[in-house]
């Protein structure tokens, strides 16, 4: 088996410095989802999505795929994915096997919803949370994921954190105890599964990061809720 470090070193010595391994495709083991008839006002968790959008327009007829930044050492156990729509009507939970192994820092997962209505939603209305199943339910380690993307797509330079603030007045993120990010209310407003979105530059988290959410109500601030973002570079 070729050493991963040797490959990366060889690539960086080449004329074009960028050299990417094709993403490892994981096998779907189990998927459960539901589509409610009415919008649900709140989702269960505070962190609902960690999404890196693509810069290119995707074929709407193509299948739903998730590209997650989860290097091999972070996926010794199976990989779990939660998909939630902004209005809270759709909620899906999928489990993928990491038994096949692989050396790529990226994983590709086919998401085949049992509810075809999910295709009617725009990518910006969908929150994806990918994480090693061993991190569930405490959800301490989370990967950056891209919806309807594969490893040929041009990924954006920001990662959007989608949170459910439980009706806070304002929300803020602190990245690695240093960088402060002000979150912006989403278009869904109070009737949304996630009501704030916070944009972080990829460069701040690609090596791994701790992001802490602070919610302001009136003149006071709630205790932090934090997660670790798995690094992939």
């Amino acid at each position: 088996m070729v050493n991963l470090k040797v490959i990366v070193m060889a690539c960086t010595l080449a004329a074009n410095a960028t050299c990417a391994l094709a993403a490892d495709r994981l096998v779907l083991v189990d998927l459960e989802d539901e589509m409610l008839p009415e919008p649900r006002v709140t989702a269960e968790a505070v962190f609902v999505g960690l999404v890196r959008p693509t810069n290119n327009t995707n074929d709407p007829e193509a299948g739903e795929t998730i590209l997650a930044a989860l290097p091999p050492d972070a996926r010794s156990a199976d990989v779990c994915v939660r998909v939630t729509t902004e209005d809270g009507r759709y909620f899906g939970h999928a489990r993928y096997s990491a038994e096949a192994g692989g050396a790529s820092p990226m994983t590709l997962m086919d998401y085949v919803p049992l509810r075809p209505e999910l295709r009617d939603y725009q990518a910006a209305e969908i929150a994806v949370l990918a994480f090693p199943c061993s991190a569930d339910p405490a959800l301490t380690d989370v990967a950056v994921a891209s919806w309807r993307a594969d490893d040929t797509d041009d990924l954006g330079q920001t990662v959007t954190v989608l949170v459910n603030s439980f009706r806070a007045d304002e929300a803020f993120l602190i990245v690695n105890d240093a960088k402060q990010v002000t979150c912006v209310p989403t278009a869904g407003g109070e009737r949304a599964a996630f009501d704030f979105s916070c944009d972080i530059d990829v460069s701040e988290i690609k090596a791994g990061a701790r992001i802490a959410l602070y919610r302001m109500r009136g003149t006071s601030i709630d205790p932090e809720v934090a997660i670790n973002v798995v690094g992939w570079e």
Binding site: V41, T42, S165, R217
Partner: peptide, 9 residues
Amino acid sequence: GQETGSGAN
């Protein structure tokens, strides 16, 4: 009032 849900006050 406010649309009721967890956290509404």
